[in-house]
């Protein structure tokens, strides 16, 4: 759409989550399309670059200042992160730094400071780009995503959220409210690796998040996730299974590489090649397992 279309947008800024759900539900019943706006780092680029779709312009529902979507809490087991918390706020949050250091570390690699100040996990989960670093980072914790609508609340396990390239199981009348993740044992190992063309303002060629709890040379909990290696955020089930089933000292590079190869299906694109991504995926997983003590 052109700038001349701007006045035709309907824009609403509900004061409460309930009001937002009601507006969204009403809108869905009349068959109109609604954009849920958080930090705008994707949407504002689309707005200025051209038509989103043919036909009527979508409504815009601004969720960026809904208190119910802000804030971080920890109950001793579970870390709850509001869907509207910016990456900058996550970076500075003492609870996140203490109980999910991987998430805090990842935020430094998102865009640059001005993008970190605006982008949110809720936004990245909703748009479901497989290249989203933030989604890969939290996916390593196997979180649940809480969504709310007039019909009520439900919690979607991360593995059931993304149903295809930029597709999710969130219904059109549902708003992502929070991310809940079970914190690993305090002081557990974690790894965040982003491989891109430069340190800042680069979309990942490959990004890897890993967490592991160890007891007597075996992993008792493991979480891996990767960005930019498949149509959805890759959760590396074969690699997880291998690592959980094998004492660290018995892992071999060949077995790890074979599992990773099964778990990723990258493409050639403007940022990288399939071959480079497969190579890098294996390398970053082996690197983390080596840190854990595997003889790779």
């Amino acid at each position: 759409m052109s700038l001349a279309d701007l006045p035709r947008y309907e824009f609403a800024r509900p004061r409460t989550l309930d009001a937002a759900c009601a507006l969204l539900s009403q809108r869905e019943q009349t068959g109109g399309r609604t954009v849920l706006l958080a930090g705008g780092t994707d949407f504002m680029v689309q707005v200025s670059q051209g038509p989103l779709v043919d036909g009527p312009l979508p409504w815009v529902l601004d969720l960026s200042r809904l208190e119910e979507l802000l804030g971080v809490g920890f109950d001793g087991t579970t870390l709850r992160i509001g869907a509207g918390v910016t990456y900058l706020a996550l970076q500075r949050d003492p609870i996140v730094r203490e109980y999910a250091p991987l998430v805090a570390r990842m935020t430094h690699d998102i865009g640059g400071p001005t993008i970190q100040a605006r982008g949110t996990l809720g936004g990245n989960l909703a748009t479901a780009s497989p290249a989203a670093d933030g989604v890969a980072a939290i996916a390593a914790y196997d979180p649940v995503i809480e969504v709310r609508s007039l019909r009520g609340s439900r919690k979607i396990p991360m593995a059931a959220l993304q149903t295809g390239y930029k597709q999710t199981s969130r219904a059109n009348d549902e708003i992502i409210v929070a991310i809940e993740l079970r914190a690993p044992a305090h002081g557990s190992a974690w790894c965040w690796r982003k491989v891109g063309a430069r340190l800042a303002q680069a979309i990942s060629k490959v990004a890897f998040a890993g967490i592991a709890e160890l007891h007597d040379g075996r992993t008792t909990r493991v979480g891996f996730a990767m960005a930019s290696v498949a149509a959805t955020t890759a959760l590396l089930p074969n690699t997880r299974e291998l690592v959980l089933a094998t004492p660290l000292g018995s892992l071999t590079a060949a077995a790890v590489d074979a599992a990773v190869t099964l778990d990723v299906s990258p493409i050639d694109d403007v940022r990288s090649t399939r071959n480079y991504r497969v190579h890098t995926a294996k390398a970053v997983v082996r690197g983390f397992l080596r840190e854990l003590g595997a003889p790779l």
Partner: peptide
């Protein structure tokens, strides 16, 4: 980035 912030916010 002021180019990514809608005035409505």
């Amino acid at each position: 980035n002021a180019c990514l912030v809608p005035i409505g916010q």
